[in-house]
């Protein structure tokens, strides 16, 4: 939208003209106005998200008992976390949950986006229906799947039981519970990657396909050399956002299984929740949360790098 004309016009009122104060580009004094516009938003974000992190770091090195914050205990909470065999189980659960969910939701999202890309009768309806799970809350997702899988009233449990010949209780069996939680998670989250991918697909100019076809490209080569390179970045962004989202998950396992059976679905986030808000060990809970934060930072740095690369073009 910004044209050479706009630049010229912008410079115009900065001259000796009288009247309204021109926009800030005229000098450092003008910085106050935009800063004032921006500061309230930044202040709120700093107070509610950044300052608490400082507090969390301080808590993680201290002895706490409910609201009382005691003395400095060094790395004791971190050591306790690392030595605890349950922590290994939590970490393993988080990785299984994150990568298990990615392995199902990403191919599903990509496949559906490709199917929805070209116009055909019924496309709008399919698209609406397939995006729908994304507006359902984690809490409701958990409840809906608990009922669907319930051996008492659930059709999914009924069908599986008939096929297997014995009673199946997906969420109650330690060996299948995680698969059940992953399935519910995929159900709610695949639309996100699908929408982003679909939006990226729509920006590919038709000429690219025509040119490739004239060069004799087949169906696979069109995908490999035209479609995929054009959606690569968006797909990567969706992957990273979903990775963070999955890794930080608390609600779904909390409501679906409560972390059970025998801790098989207690992911790291749920462990923090239990330590902090059920057992009220704020220091220990903060320490585990900071370990999660470290993982988030690494994944996010990749995200920011991709965004930067994207905006360069």
């Amino acid at each position: 939208m910004s044209t050479p004309g706009a630049t010229a016009a912008r410079r115009g009122p900065c001259g000796a003209k009288e009247g309204p104060v021109p926009p800030a580009r005229c000098g450092p004094a003008g910085s106050a106005f935009p800063l004032a516009l921006m500061l309230p938003a930044v202040l709120l974000v700093v107070c509610v998200t950044f300052l608490p992190i400082v507090r969390a770091v301080s808590l993680s090195f201290r002895d706490t008992s409910y609201l009382k914050v005691g003395g400095f205990v060094g790395l004791r909470h971190f050591q306790a976390f690392l030595r605890d065999p349950l922590s290994r189980q939590n970490l393993l659960n988080s990785l299984t949950f994150t990568f298990g969910s990615l392995a199902v939701s990403l191919p599903l999202a990509l496949g559906l986006a490709l199917l929805l890309h070209r116009p055909f009768p019924g496309r709008g309806m399919f698209r609406t229906v397939l995006i729908l799970p994304w507006v359902v809350s984690q809490l409701l997702t958990a409840l809906l799947w608990r009922w669907l899988d319930s051996p008492l009233l659930g059709p999914a449990a009924y069908i599986l039981s008939e096929l297997a010949g014995t009673r199946v209780d997906i969420l109650g069996d330690p060996n299948t519970a995680m698969a059940g939680v992953i399935l519910a998670n995929v159900w709610r989250s695949f639309p996100y990657a699908m929408i982003l991918t679909l939006a990226a697909l729509q920006t590919i100019p038709d000429e690219l396909y025509e040119a490739a076809r004239i060069d004799g490209a087949g169906r696979w080569n069109l995908f490999r050399f035209v479609t995929f390179p054009m959606i690569q970045n968006t797909f990567l962004i969706a992957t990273i956002i979903l990775t963070i989202h999955y890794f930080n998950m608390i609600e779904l396992p909390l409501v679906l299984t409560g972390g059970g059976p025998v801790n098989r679905t207690e992911v790291l986030g749920l462990r923090v929740y239990r330590e902090a808000f059920v057992l009220f060990k704020f220091g220990f809970g903060s320490a585990i949360a900071l370990v999660m934060f470290a993982v988030n930072i690494v994944v996010s740095l990749v995200y920011i790098k991709v965004l930067r690369a994207e905006s360069r073009y």
Binding site: A41, V42, V45, V46, V48, T49, F50, L51, P52, I53, R55, A56, L59, I241, I244, F247, N248, I250, G269, V272, Y273, A276, F277, F282, G285, S286, A289, L290, M292, F293, N296, I297, V299, S300, L301, Y303, I304, L307
Partner: peptide, 18 residues
């Protein structure tokens, strides 16, 4: 700074916010 909030897991801040 605003963009960087994507890397903060809600639970880290929830304990101090509480």
């Amino acid at each position: 700074l605003l963009l960087a909030t994507v890397m903060i897991p809600g639970i880290v801040t929830l304990i101090p916010v509480y």
